[in-house]
């Protein structure tokens, strides 16, 4: 007997993490458990409904050893679900043994600082390609180039928006840490 699966397309931005997790928690509550995330396509498997909590942690490859990382989570009752880029999805049953992934604001702050640092590289790349494209379009304008310019510009706006929102989050956390 095969397990019933379903795919759902949902778009969540970088700054909509809480919203995404709440949605995943609700899915589990109605018996649909996340197995995979790929470019906004969420794959679920049907099971017994339970009060399960999801958490997306951010870790860049450079700073860690995956085996050990997943082990520490497993030891705290957090099961590894899937990975998308630098985001690792975990789930934990919400019972008396449940514990938060970040038990203090200081360490939560460090997570978002890493997210922020990681955003800088694609942002510089986007600005760079925007400059190159606009120079080329000045010399020889074409419809194709215009579309490309528009795409890069939109991506840059999204990146800037996300950066500002995360800076806001970091500042808020920083304030509550230093108080």
């Amino acid at each position: 007997m095969s397990v019933k699966q379903k795919h759902v397309v949902r778009f969540f931005g970088l700054v909509q993490e809480e919203k995404e997790m709440t949605w995943l928690n609700q899915m589990a509550l109605s018996g649909w458990y996340l197995v995979r995330v790929m470019f906004f396509v969420y794959t679920f498997e049907q099971g017994e409904p339970s009060d399960t909590r999801y958490y997306g942690d951010f870790k860049t490859m450079k700073q860690h050893d995956i085996g050990e990382y997943l082990q520490v989570f497993a030891d705290c009752g957090w099961k590894f679900v899937c990975q998308q880029g630098s985001w690792y999805y975990f789930s934990s049953l919400f019972d008396k043994n449940y514990r938060e992934v970040y038990s203090n604001k200081q360490s939560q702050l460090e997570k978002y600082r890493t997210v922020l640092l990681t955003l800088i590289i694609p942002m510089v790349m986007l600005i760079n390609s925007l400059l190159i494209l606009s120079r080329r379009s000045e010399r020889s304008p074409s419809f194709g180039l215009d579309i490309l310019l528009f795409i890069v510009f939109t991506l840059l706006l999204i990146a800037i928006y996300s950066t500002i929102r995360i800076i806001g989050k970091v500042t808020k956390l920083q304030k509550s840490v230093s108080e």
Partner: peptide, 30 residues
């Protein structure tokens, strides 16, 4: 190891400090 640290800190602080995995792994790395 990580799990041992967690248990020891919980015991030393009489259950006041319960490290989350993100906090503990981050601290060990750092």
């Amino acid at each position: 190891h990580g799990y041992g640290i967690m248990q020891k800190v919980e015991q030393l602080s009489k259950g006041r400090i319960l490290f989350g995995p993100g906090t503990l792994y981050g601290a060990m790395n750092n």
